[in-house]
Computed example of a mutant assay.
Amino acid sequence: MVDNLPPGVTLGGATSINDSSVIVGWRCRGECWLDERRMYGNAFMLVPQTN
Rank of each mutant, 00 (worst) to 15 (best):
L5T: 03
L5M: 07
L5K: 02
L5S: 04
P7L: 11
P7Q: 13
P7H: 10
P7T: 13
G8I: 13
G8K: 11
T10K: 09
T10G: 00
T10D: 01
L11H: 05
L11R: 04
L11C: 08
L11K: 05
L11N: 06
G12N: 05
A14D: 10
A14T: 09
A14L: 07
A14H: 06
T15L: 07
T15I: 12
T15D: 07
S16N: 07
S16C: 01
I17N: 01
I17E: 06
N18S: 04
N18M: 06
D19P: 02
D19F: 08
D19R: 10
S20F: 05
S21R: 07
S21W: 12
S21P: 01
S21D: 13
V22A: 08
I23W: 02
I23Q: 04
I23K: 02
V24K: 11
G25C: 09
G25Y: 11
G25E: 06
W26Y: 14
W26R: 13
W26P: 01
R27W: 07
R27P: 00
R27Q: 12
C28E: 06
R29T: 10
R29M: 08
E31R: 02
E31H: 03
E31I: 04
E31Q: 04
E31V: 06
C32L: 00
C32E: 00
C32W: 00
W33T: 00
L34R: 00
L34H: 01
L34N: 03
L34W: 06
L34M: 06
L34K: 00
D35A: 14
D35I: 10
D35W: 10
D35P: 05
E36K: 11
R37A: 15
R37I: 12
R37G: 15
R37K: 14
R38T: 15
R38C: 15
R38H: 15
R38F: 15
M39G: 11
M39Q: 12
Y40S: 11
N42I: 09
N42A: 15
N42C: 14
N42F: 14
A43L: 15
A43W: 03
A43N: 15
F44G: 08
F44T: 11
L46E: 09
L46S: 09
L46F: 13
L46H: 11
L46T: 08
V47S: 12
P48Y: 08
P48Q: 06
P48I: 04
Q49F: 05
Q49C: 07
Q49G: 04
